[in-house]
């Protein structure tokens, strides 16, 4: 069976976040913004203050980067597709 990446395994329903909310909380250290694109794509351009965690590394590194499970995390990739 295909295993889902840990960040997708949210308890309850899947939450979405709007651009406005991200903009308003950019400077908030309690709010983590995660870019799941490959390193090269991340370097070419990303939302300020976001952390790069490529999808391929989510399984291995997510726990290390965010050990607290209740941490507020927003993930994004290239677009809606």
């Amino acid at each position: 069976m295909k295993q889902t990446a840990p960040y997708m395994k949210t308890s309850g329903h899947k939450h979405t976040i709007s651009r406005e909310e991200i903009l308003s909380r950019l400077e908030d250290p309690a709010f983590a913004l995660v870019n799941v694109m490959p390193k090269e794509t991340f370097e070419a351009g990303h939302i300020p203050h976001s952390i790069n965690l490529p999808l391929s590394e989510v399984e291995t590194k997510a726990r290390q980067i965010f050990p607290v499970l209740s941490r507020e995390i927003s993930v994004y990739c290239m677009g809606p597709t």
Partner: peptide, 25 residues
């Protein structure tokens, strides 16, 4: 599992189109 995960559906495409700031390395 993580309990407070949000998904920004629009992603980079929506972000860039809105003219919001983009950071490059």
């Amino acid at each position: 599992s993580y309990t407070n995960v949000y998904h920004y559906v629009g992603g980079m495409t929506d972000w860039v189109e809105s003219g919001a700031p983009v950071e490059r390395v």
